[in-house]
Nucleic acid binder design. Structure first.
Lengths: 205, 205, 205, 205
DNA sequence: CATGAATGAGTCTTCATTCAT
DNA sequence: AATGAATGAAGACTCATTCAT
């Protein structure tokens, strides 16, 4: 948590520090970004940095949490009202929404990527925690789908959630980060969902 | 690539360096393992290290490539003769084989995990290259499955390969690393394959 | 010397600053206590500190001098009227009085201890000065004892004063600081005084 | 403990580091002497320092222990053979011997002084330990004196030892450090011993 | 080739004090 | 006078790599 001193800063100074730090961390990676890099780029004295944040991780987790909140505010409404449709059928729309968010907050979004690129233990713990939270949401929504008769009764919801999430992290995140187009990403998603919905096995084989 | 000097070393000295280094890197992580740690644990002079390897990364990539080769030698036969069965049906057996290998060469196996824990650019490139190689194998085998009429004709083989691979890396690797039992891992696999084979959508919904 | 600004402060604010600072310095040691610690604990703005005191040492020396004065007010009456008794015989009573004072003003008392725990040159000078002052008192009183025929005529008063003082600082201070009981401290004193009064050499040896 | 690397150094390089460091610490005080000061004065790279010593304290304790050993080699013979005389009568000779040693190894000797000038906890522990060791020697020798009938049977040996030691540390050390002459120091000692041997109380008073 | 000492840029962090409002 | 942000020199320590023997 940043100190009160940081929160007291004039808004544009605060914003500047946030943006510059985000850009730096995205460019160099969390591990490789040093406090020196940050203070130089932000043009603030080294001492000030430590008057704002406990340390590098404090800054990082602050930035990330902001992101999370922004993202949640953006996406939550979708999750909360499926309007009688199946989550599995709407999945593509969720991806689309994430994408919209990512397009608008690219820097902030990429930051989440750093969670997968570091060896820092504290950061790793944080990532694990966030993943568990997301998986829970998936599990809930999929359970609803089963209850509503959209999915086969015997489906293992936990495994399905993990499958969706794994693809999300490994392929979609990656594609976004690498600059894939909306079309590419949505096609990939549709295709994947199709496989999962209808299966790949030829009948009678 | 290690220098000729390294290759000329007596076999048991070479093996010792490899084993000790692997153990260290697995325990501490690639980034956190210092050359000091290595030379101390291996009981070789600091200077020798740089006469054997260009730098820390050179050692790492050498170890990893050895691992790859060992693993390939172990697993390749399976891929090459499906004996008239579908890859998708045998997938569980491949996982089982991987598991057998991992159990027997745990240290060597875990090393691959480091690929996902490091921000070092060269390491990342390496990982990407390895992933592409594995994906290619999957694609080939799945294409065969389609040609042999085991899978629906319209299946997007590329996406399917990615889906399998994502789950493999994100869930299975993780479970192995965390010490899951064979049973747990195979059950998870079976469950996932079932979803993919038969789909999750309730008919008529 | 504190600034006029400090003296103008409302009495309870002044007292609060003094007490909190003393507690901190006693707990952490003068060197280890930072101005940050002080302003945080006192709940005063950082800038105010420097409007009250020139610097950290200025505060410390002010606190110490206050202590000295309080202690003197407390103990002086004893020194000034020996009521016809020898100082050497009353020494135990002085220690008792010091002890009483220390018990009642432990925080203030301990502060003096910091004088012996710091390498700061100014602090050292201060300590030396205070010691010289105390030694002077001892010398005066012992000289009186000689004049009054309580002590042998040939006794080197200067050395005797130093001997008493050395023991006082090295053993008694220490014991008080470490939480020795009154009994322990007075016994130690009596024993020491006995040695000095009657000597240790066996007659005829 | 210095590392093997340090011990492997050419003798004159080792000696140089020791001497320069001792001088520095004596001049600036242990607390104020920084590793930077040391490497600059010794003209060795910063990294080398940490290849020789764990940290500043490691160096200091090494220097001090060397000193201790040298001093012990020098003084021990005296303690071990009192040749039928009383320790209390020979005390002056011990001080003389210490003085001789100090004169010849002034730098090394002064170093011991730093023990009393620092707030460093580790150093303080060390000092306490050393003091206890010295006190033990005093107690032993004085106990012998009592047993041999040189001192009154009822003398509290512990208190006497502490008295001698306190004076030693507080007055003699100080005088040596401040550059007192042999004569001054020995006179002071004789005078103090006289007081302790024969007491100061006028008979019949 | 083996050995292990040499190197110094770079890391995080602290803190007394000054400055601007 | 009160406030609290600004400042940057300085501290301890690390480590990959090179050098000299």
């Amino acid at each position: 948590m940043p100190t009160q001193t940081f929160y007291n800063l004039p808004k544009n100074k605060k914003k500047n520090i946030e943006n510059v730090a985000i850009k730096l961390i995205n460019d160099l990676g969390y591990d490789k970004t040093t406090v020196s890099d940050i203070v130089k780029a932000c043009q603030i004295p080294r001492g000030s940095f430590y008057q704002y944040f406990d340390n590098k991780f404090d800054l990082f987790s602050y930035l990330l949490e902001s992101k999370q909140q922004e993202e949640m505010t953006f996406i939550k409404p979708l999750y909360e009202d499926l309007a009688g449709e199946a989550f599995i059928d709407l999945y593509k729309d969720f991806v689309q929404a994430s994408l919209d968010f990512a397009r608008q907050h690219l820097d902030v979004y990429q930051l989440g990527f750093q969670l997968y690129q570091t060896h820092d233990e504290t950061v790793n713990d944080m990532r694990q925690h966030m993943e568990e939270k997301k998986l829970d949401i998936y599990r809930d929504l999929l359970t609803q789908d089963v209850e509503n008769g959209y999915l086969k009764a015997g489906v293992n919801v936990d495994v399905l959630a993990k499958l969706l999430y794994a693809f999300n992290v490994k392929e979609l995140y990656h594609l976004i980060y690498e600059g894939g187009t909306d079309r590419e990403i949505l096609d990939l998603t549709t295709c994947m969902i199709d496989i999962i919905k209808y299966g790949v096995k030829k009948e009678g084989s």
